[in-house]
Simulated assay, not measured.
Amino acid sequence: MSRSPVVPVLAIDGPSGSGKGTVSRLVADHLGWRLLDSGALYRAVGYAAGMAGLDLSDAEAVTRCAETTKIQFRAAADGGDTRVIVNGHDATDELRTETAGAAASAIASVPSVRQALVALQLGFRKAPGLVADGRDMGTVIFPDAPFKVFLTASAAERAKRRYKQLKEKGLSVTLAGLQREIEARDSRDASRAVAPLKPAVDAVLVDSTGMGIGDVVAKVLAVVKL
């Protein structure tokens, strides 16, 4: 009996603010592949936990939340960013806040939460291919991915990008405060015991500091050899 062909995966890992989300979406559109925003899953669980008034340090309660939260991705009617539906509520905008990011980082350090979301992430691997955006896509979730990129940028650069995004949304933030949050999150993500943020040994490092989005996308697409 012949084996089914393996669906190719491009794993794009990297720290917060490195541009993974935008780059992954553009690359997926170019290739005609599916897209997995794994960070949105963790943000969605963090959001659901917050709405339920849970203590994020209560591993058992947060794990139950991860197991029961209903998360759906829907294409935007206007062709914009994919909408994320959490327990029936369109939480896309809420999930982009720094609060949601901090909550995601906190619960991502809980092994049982990560395990609860593994099967959900693996289910995104469908033909013709998958672009998987996250922090452990190439090291833990899809270690057999034939294409891997570790996308990064300096903390100062990432803070500037985030500052611009949030100010455009009318939010009150400071550049210094955002850089401190990014550096703290980098340290927390890199030092956690489970699935720490680090490049896969076979990943191609792409530093986007000072680069335009088009150049970054071109560098990432060059990794995919079909």
Rank of each mutant, 00 (worst) to 15 (best):
K160Q: 11
I182H: 02
A127C: 06
R135Y: 10
R180V: 15
V149A: 08
I141E: 06
E183C: 07
P143V: 02
Q179C: 08
K164F: 07
A176M: 09
E168Q: 12
K167R: 15
L151R: 00
I182A: 04
V149R: 05
K164D: 07
A184F: 11
G129L: 05
I141F: 10
Q165I: 12
R188D: 04
A153D: 02
A155R: 11
S172T: 14
R185W: 04
S172C: 03
R158I: 06
A145F: 00
R162I: 13
R185M: 04
R188V: 14
I141P: 13
K167C: 13
D144E: 15
Q179H: 10
R135L: 02
R162P: 13
S154Y: 05
I182P: 00
L130T: 04
D133R: 11
G138I: 07
A127I: 10
T139M: 13
S172K: 12
K169A: 13
E168D: 11
V173N: 03
V131P: 07
L166D: 03
V140E: 14
G177P: 15
A155K: 14
F142P: 03
F142C: 01
K148R: 11
V140H: 14
G138V: 06
M137N: 00
D144V: 14
G129R: 06
P143R: 02
L151K: 02
R185P: 08
A155D: 06
Q179G: 05
L175D: 12
G138D: 09
L175T: 13
E183S: 06
R188N: 11
A176D: 13
T174R: 09
D186F: 06
L151M: 00
Q165G: 10
A159D: 05
K160E: 15
K148E: 02
S172P: 01
R158P: 02
T152V: 06
L171D: 14
R135P: 07
A176K: 14
F142E: 00
F147A: 07
L166S: 00
G138F: 09
G138W: 04
D186R: 01
Q179K: 15
V131N: 01
L175R: 15
L166N: 03
K169V: 06
